[in-house]
């Protein structure tokens, strides 16, 4: 754990705000590409998919923080709020592109949410992320108290796999990537359950 201690010492000097800036650069880049032909001849769907996939990747990274600390000793907890929020921003943009550029009508959006299971599931995941995003600030932690806050934020364990299930369900044919994302998330959650058990036993 010598290496981990040195990394943690170095990380202590890094503030969290660059995570937001660096994290959102790809989103700006995607919109720029979409507007200038860089996403191919059908930029709307491409934009929608890239935003959704990046959001899922960042959320998986936030889910990996605790297992990473347990396995390697590297402590990224200070950056987890930023990761969670950046992931949420991507999912919100994904949703906005779907609503404004893709479906172009509230009626169509509402009909899809009610009628299409993969959209119902994706939307549920987003709604579960909403209270987490709203309470991802120091004031909310203080108001809720650490215990209630932590309990509330366990919703992530539900919201993030729902996002991956949404991804698996929208794929045509037996595609590997969506299943791999779902497996990674379930793996990270399984590590956590094991972690809780050992802690309870100790």
């Amino acid at each position: 754990m010598m290496g981990a201690a040195r990394i943690n010492r170095a990380l202590r000097r890094v503030p969290a705000w660059p995570v937001y800036v660096v994290g959102m650069v790809p989103a700006v880049w995607f919109f720029w590409l979409g507007a200038t032909g860089g996403l191919g001849v059908e930029p709307i769907t491409a934009l929608e998919h890239r935003l959704g996939l990046t959001g899922l990747q960042v959320l998986i990274a936030s889910l990996a923080v605790t297992p990473l600390r347990r396995v390697s000793g590297i402590d990224l907890v200070r950056f987890r709020r930023a990761l969670g929020l950046v992931g949420f921003f991507y999912i919100a943009l994904h949703l906005a592109v779907w609503l404004i550029l893709d479906l172009q009508s509230w009626q169509r959006v509402w009909a899809d949410i009610l009628k299409r299971p993969y959209i119902t599931i994706g939307m549920s995941g987003f709604l579960l992320l909403l209270p987490l995003a709203l309470t991802s600030n120091t004031l909310a932690v203080r108001k809720l108290g650490p215990l209630r806050w932590r309990r509330l934020h366990r919703l992530a364990y539900l919201a993030i796999p729902l996002g991956a299930i949404h991804f698996v369900m929208l794929a045509k044919g037996w595609q590997i990537a969506p299943l791999a994302y779902l497996a990674a998330i379930l793996g990270l959650l399984a590590l956590r359950i094991r972690g809780l058990r050992t802690r309870a036993a100790a």
Partner: peptide, 9 residues
């Protein structure tokens, strides 16, 4: 296809 980012439905 071909209408760009604001391609209508």
């Amino acid at each position: 296809i071909g209408g760009g980012v604001f391609s209508p439905r």
